[in-house]
Simulated assay, not measured.
Amino acid sequence: MAAVLGIDLGGTRLRAAWSQAPGEQPRPLGEEPAPRSAGDLGARVAAYARQLPDVPAGIGVTIPGLVDGTVCRWVPNLPYLDGVDLAALLAPAGGPQTQVVAGNDAQLALLAETTNGAASGTRDAILVAVGTGIGSAVLSQGRIARGAHGGACSFGWACADLADPGDERLGWLERQASGSALDALGATLDPPRDGPGLIAAARAGEQAALTALEPAVAALGATLAGAVALLDPEVVLLAGGVAAATDVLEPLLREQLAPRLPRHLRDVPVRAGAFGPRAGIAGALIAAHSGPTWWELRP
């Protein structure tokens, strides 16, 4: 089969890989800081495409924001992409028959987890990815929910504080429990820690770290409880950087979920995604092989 190129574009990093067949392990091409302009992105993707054995049959791209088809509608951490049509931008990286497909990073991570990961065999699942921001995606009856414009299930914008005035670029949950929020909570410790250091201290049983985590866990738990109550998933997956902290967060989250859910929903499994930081690139490659209806999983 013809090779495809996968691009996992995050708020701070870009990963590239390729594969020859659906389900094949990604073959890494490189990882680097995120581009600083749309033109820079186009040039880098073209450079990666030249490393493939042939012109790519497809290019799959994850975007940390709202994507409608191949048009970036709103990308808070990479605003230069707002309004950019990736099919046009990346055309020089392929040939006349190369198909460009794009999707929200959390949605494509869930595509990977559902196809060959921790949600394999399920038809209803929730994925929450905590990193620079908070990404989320929902599998409902075998399809990844996208909504009218590709932005369905944006849990980072869920709010459990009626007094919150809102923010132009960051949702309430992102301000409470994203990677930067965990960094801020860790900075209150003595000595100060970053987010991963806060998690490590909590894993070691340090009471100050567990106490510092409480606001973020309470916010995330309240949001997940509402999502579980609405969607009745078979599993909740933690992805992104927070996946490595599932051993710490799962019991804390379950304490938040139980009193907010009816009995028949309290036992929903909460577990780490199988792909870890590779979920986005794996999903981008699956989408590149699948084509423009990648979100409609095959039975």
Score class of each variant (00 low, 15 high):
residue 3 A to C: 06
residue 4 V to S: 12
residue 7 I to Q: 06
residue 10 G to M: 06
residue 11 G to T: 10
residue 13 R to M: 10
residue 13 R to G: 11
residue 14 L to W: 11
residue 15 R to H: 10
residue 22 P to L: 06
residue 22 P to N: 08
residue 23 G to P: 03
residue 25 Q to F: 08
residue 27 R to M: 08
residue 29 L to Q: 13
residue 31 E to K: 12
residue 32 E to P: 09
residue 32 E to R: 15
residue 32 E to F: 12
residue 35 P to A: 05
residue 36 R to Y: 05
residue 41 L to Y: 08
residue 42 G to L: 03
residue 46 A to P: 07
residue 49 A to K: 00
residue 51 Q to H: 12
residue 53 P to V: 07
residue 53 P to Q: 11
residue 67 V to E: 05
residue 68 D to P: 05
residue 69 G to Q: 07
residue 70 T to Y: 01
residue 72 C to Q: 10
residue 74 W to G: 10
residue 75 V to H: 15
residue 79 P to T: 11
residue 79 P to H: 10
residue 80 Y to I: 02
residue 81 L to Y: 06
residue 82 D to P: 06
residue 82 D to T: 14
residue 87 A to C: 02
residue 88 A to Y: 04
residue 90 L to V: 09
residue 90 L to Y: 14
residue 92 P to C: 04
residue 94 G to M: 07
residue 95 G to R: 01
residue 106 A to G: 06
residue 108 L to H: 09
residue 110 L to D: 00
residue 111 L to R: 04
residue 115 T to E: 12
residue 116 N to K: 07
residue 120 S to Q: 15
residue 125 A to R: 08
residue 128 V to E: 07
residue 129 A to L: 07
residue 130 V to T: 04
residue 131 G to V: 10
residue 131 G to R: 09
residue 132 T to F: 11
residue 133 G to T: 12
residue 135 G to H: 08
residue 137 A to V: 04
residue 138 V to K: 15
residue 143 R to I: 14
residue 145 A to H: 11
residue 145 A to W: 12
residue 146 R to C: 13
residue 146 R to E: 14
residue 149 H to E: 13
residue 151 G to T: 05
residue 151 G to P: 03
residue 155 F to S: 09
residue 157 W to E: 03
residue 164 D to I: 07
residue 165 P to S: 01
residue 169 R to E: 11
residue 172 W to E: 06
residue 173 L to W: 04
residue 177 A to P: 11
residue 180 S to H: 12
residue 181 A to M: 13
residue 182 L to M: 14
residue 185 L to H: 05
residue 187 A to S: 12
residue 195 G to E: 09
residue 196 P to S: 01
residue 196 P to N: 05
residue 196 P to M: 01
residue 196 P to I: 00
residue 198 L to S: 00
residue 198 L to N: 00
residue 199 I to C: 04
residue 200 A to W: 01
residue 206 E to A: 02
residue 209 A to F: 01
residue 212 A to G: 01
residue 213 L to R: 00
residue 215 P to M: 03
residue 220 L to K: 01
residue 221 G to D: 10
residue 222 A to R: 13
residue 223 T to C: 15
residue 224 L to A: 04
residue 229 A to Q: 11
residue 230 L to P: 05
residue 230 L to I: 13
residue 232 D to T: 12
residue 234 E to F: 05
residue 234 E to G: 14
residue 234 E to L: 03
residue 241 G to V: 14
residue 246 T to R: 10
residue 247 D to F: 11
residue 247 D to P: 11
residue 249 L to Y: 07
residue 250 E to D: 09
residue 251 P to V: 03
residue 254 R to D: 03
residue 255 E to N: 10
residue 256 Q to C: 07
residue 260 R to C: 07
residue 261 L to W: 01
residue 264 H to K: 03
residue 267 D to I: 03
residue 267 D to Y: 05
residue 268 V to P: 06
residue 268 V to M: 02
residue 271 R to T: 15
residue 272 A to F: 14
residue 272 A to D: 08
residue 273 G to N: 05
residue 274 A to H: 15
residue 278 R to G: 09
residue 279 A to M: 08
residue 280 G to F: 10
residue 281 I to F: 13
residue 282 A to Q: 15
residue 285 L to F: 08
residue 285 L to I: 05
residue 287 A to V: 01
residue 288 A to D: 05
residue 288 A to E: 02
residue 291 G to I: 00
residue 294 W to Y: 09
residue 297 L to N: 03
residue 297 L to R: 06
